[in-house]
C-alpha cells in the first residue's frame, strides 16, 4: 500500500492524493517493504486474467503506468488494488480517487515527471457519474494535459481517459490490462530515460546567472 507522507490512506478522498509524490526510487522502496494481504491466495489462475503479451513486453521494458481510477469502478477496492499492484509490480501504480472529477492536470504531470511513462484515468460512463459532471470535467482536463505535454515534444497518447462501459462495466483489472497494452506501444518516456551522451561530447557553457552585486 502506498503510504503518503501524512500517513493518510490513498483510498480516502481528495487530499491524500499526491500530497507528496516521491521519486521513483523511494516509491519502489516503499513497495518492497510493505506487507501484502492474504488476498494473494485469491488471485485467479484464470488465463483470461493473466497479463497479455504486450503487457509482459511492457514489463520487460520496465515502463510504468500511473493509473488514476474512480472508486466507483467495479472490483477496485483496496484488496483488488493491492493484488493488481503485486501482479504488475513496478509496471503499474494505482491511485484511487473519489471521482474522476477530482483529477487535476497536475496529478498527471507530476506522475509523468517523476516516474510514469504514461498516466491514465478510468472514469465512469457518461451520464453515470455520481457527481453528475465529474467524468466530463476529467475528460477536458486530460485533453488540456495532452495539449500541454505535446508543446514540449511528448506524445499526447501518454495521457488519456478511459470511460467504463455503461451496459457492461469492466472491472479495474481488465481496464488496467487494456491500458497497459495500449501504452506498451509507446517508447520509454524521454523524461525518465535520457539518451546517453557520446564520449567527447562537451556541454556548452552558457551560464548566464547573475552575480550578486551587494553583500
Amino acid at each position: 500500500m502506498l503510504i503518503l507522507d501524512n500517513g493518510v490512506c490513498p483510498s480516502q478522498q481528495g487530499k491524500a492524493l499526491f500530497l507528496s509524490l516521491k521519486t521513483r526510487a523511494s516509491v519502489r522502496a516503499r513497495f518492497q517493504n510493505r506487507e501484502l494481504p492474504s488476498m494473494e491466495s485469491r488471485m485467479s489462475s484464470d488465463p483470461k486474467e493473466q497479463a497479455g503479451p504486450k503487457t509482459r513486453a511492457a514489463r520487460e521494458k520496465k515502463r510504468t503506468l500511473a493509473l488514476f481510477y474512480c472508486q466507483n469502478t467495479p472490483e477496485s477496492d483496496e484488496a483488488h488494488r493491492q493484488a493488481l499492484e503485486k501482479r504488475y509490480a513496478s509496471t503499474l501504480k494505482l491511485f484511487p480517487i473519489a471521482c474522476s472529477g477530482r483529477l487535476d492536470p497536475l496529478h498527471l504531470l507530476k506522475a509523468l515527471e517523476e516516474f510514469a511513462d504514461a498516466a491514465y484515468v478510468v472514469a465512469c460512463p457518461e451520464g453515470a457519474c455520481r457527481y453528475f459532471e465529474g467524468n466530463l470535467r476529467a475528460r477536458k482536463r486530460v485533453e488540456r494535459t495532452a495539449e500541454t505535454i505535446s508543446q514540449i515534444g511528448l506524445e499526447k497518447e501518454r495521457v488519456g481517459l478511459i470511460a467504463n462501459s455503461k451496459e457492461n462495466p469492466k472491472p479495474l483489472a481488465t481496464l488496467a490490462e487494456e491500458i497497459l497494452d495500449r501504452t506498451g506501444l509507446l517508447r520509454p518516456s524521454p523524461v525518465l530515460h535520457r539518451p546517453k551522451r557520446g564520449r567527447g561530447t562537451k556541454e556548452k557553457k552558457d551560464d548566464h546567472s547573475r552575480k550578486k552585486t551587494h553583500g
Binding site: L109, T148, Q151, I152, P190, V191, L192
Partner: peptide
C-alpha cells in the same frame, strides 16, 4: 498555485528531455 505547479512541472520535463 495549480497553474504554477503545472508550468514548473512541464518545464522540468522539457529540460530533462534535453538533458
Amino acid at each position: 498555485e495549480k497553474e504554477t505547479g503545472m508550468l514548473a512541472s512541464t518545464l522540468r520535463m522539457a529540460n530533462k528531455m534535453e538533458g
